[in-house]
Nucleic acid binder design. Sequence first.
DNA 1: CTGAAAGCGCTTACAG
DNA 2: CTGAAAGCGCTTACAG
Lengths: 359, 359
Amino acid sequence: MKKPAASTIRNVAHAAGVSVTTVSRHLNGRIKLPAETSERIRAAVAKLEYRPNAIARRLSKGRSETIGLIVSDISYPFFAAIASSAEEEASRLGYSLVMFNSRNIAAKELAFLSRIDDAQVDGILLMTNHPDDGALVEKINACSNVVLVDEDVPGAMAPRLFADNRLGAQLATDHLLAHGHETIAFVGGPPALLSSRERFGAFKDSLKNSGLRVNPDHVFFGDYDEQSGLRAILQFAALDNPPTAIFASADMLALGILQGCRKLGITVPAELSLVGFDDIRNVDLLDPPLTAIHQSAEEFGRRAVGLLIDHINGAEIPDVAPVAVKLVVRHSVAAPRKAHWKLAGNASAENRPPARVGI
Amino acid sequence: MKKPAASTIRNVAHAAGVSVTTVSRHLNGRIKLPAETSERIRAAVAKLEYRPNAIARRLSKGRSETIGLIVSDISYPFFAAIASSAEEEASRLGYSLVMFNSRNIAAKELAFLSRIDDAQVDGILLMTNHPDDGALVEKINACSNVVLVDEDVPGAMAPRLFADNRLGAQLATDHLLAHGHETIAFVGGPPALLSSRERFGAFKDSLKNSGLRVNPDHVFFGDYDEQSGLRAILQFAALDNPPTAIFASADMLALGILQGCRKLGITVPAELSLVGFDDIRNVDLLDPPLTAIHQSAEEFGRRAVGLLIDHINGAEIPDVAPVAVKLVVRHSVAAPRKAHWKLAGNASAENRPPARVGI
DNA sequence: CTGAAAGCGCTTACAG
DNA sequence: CTGAAAGCGCTTACAG
């Protein structure tokens, strides 16, 4: 199955009547050759269809002009959007970007990071969900040239780029508060993650600033997926005093919540208000269009790549500003039912019928 | 910035008191060593934290145990889902999978394919939208070890894996027909693509079998994205005789159509029925839940990887069966308005008011 | 300025 | 069975 041996730099040198050294230097732009010589090389390259062997180059040079991106799940829309943007920026800066899917498996993350050792990649953008894995911290510190994106790995010595989680959560919560909600639930991802901690922290602070306290029954931590959102709403719906609003700290959670609401016959926003986080593509087409905290995947990818390439080139990385967030108001938030009843003065939250009404 | 030189196989050999050859052979399982010797090697590996240099291995061996996946846009949900599944299957079979984002740029596809030449990857899963690019065919044939996934590159000599496009389109069209629609529009992607041609072909056939003909005004080809869907519905809505139903040959197109309907005040399915294709995650949460042709991204990724690895290993690739499709009925299809009017006998399609009514 | 030669870290025919 | 040596295709200090 061997294909015809590809031509090598030796063949080119021979055909052009110069040394291998000269060809190499010329092709890498480290030398200025007489027009006639460089033309001979050009012709030889063309004739032999010479293409430098990148593997050989890496082995001797120790660089690949390639960067990697490790992601726990490429089919997670927000991650895919970041990956797409990162590729574009890398390309603009003369780098290739290869993407690795870790499926959230710590061992795969370590294996992918090891590709820095071989110079398979010059550096890596790491998006992980294993913040407290000791081996990971060690590996990152051994590798250098990794930048942490979206989630933290505490203790790792690496540049980091995160969203403004606290501001986002505050905007979301205040928006719900402004509509008169007083029993607001929080649905989060894995509690150890930076995003969960910061978003939940700001959520609590916002409630406190309004004189409210968080009800432990109204807090749910799971994974950042539809499943968890579904479980959360099922759990809330079974409560004697279900919340009138939910801050879902990821759109994928909101999706699961919406799914659950449909199953249970809860109408959003009439009976339950909902705000998401991420603002992934097409959430404006949901039923109802989702009000969400927007963070720019494009900015995430672009800035992360810039940071990494600067770092690879030995530049000092200054403190980096968080990725900006903003509230995008659509139609998944309304005034709480309870509030109306209060006005009417005829029912307390506790003894009203469960919030399960057909559409 | 050099990190402490990683240990090499020479260091290990030295520490274990054997030759480099022996270490290499032992580590690659080509040799059975006395327990005592292999233990010395194990200890040396552990002590020196030896990790084989994959780049050096590739250079001398010409294989990488890595496969690549080229995709035009990793943030396209259906593609991301395929990529995710492909990675899982590759991993199961002992291969790494790296993903390349081509942004639909032919030159990038060629460059990525060239990574086969260097043994950066042993083979490639190619998802392209450049079916008629002569250079691509040539490159694929030169590379061998590529398999075409989802779309064809006519003339290329490579195994292929496609969905059952014709059946899918037929199921979609017949479903609309069964609801009484007679003016059904087709919205497709780039007309040169296999998916567009097959889906449009089967659409036409289904109409013909019902004694209907396709109205050129009711056919729109664009890209497979929301933008194109939006443009299509805008164009249809301006017609004197807009369609009562649309077969959108990709969910992303359906998303754009839904967006347009919302803008124009067209209610789906009351005024316009819609069926999509792909059945990507969460289309059941749209407004309305989208009826769509389902194709399994999981099956696509899994089977494509199997095909590629068999091909790499020189196995004969038999004719491959298409990826199965099925109709998933949700709530974006209803009987046509026109049909009701006909029953009432008071208006023809031509002079009824345009289908633009507020919700 | 140019080129012969060593070296990057492996694998593997070849000889002992 | 084992190991010294050549080779994979580049880059680059070093000498001319």
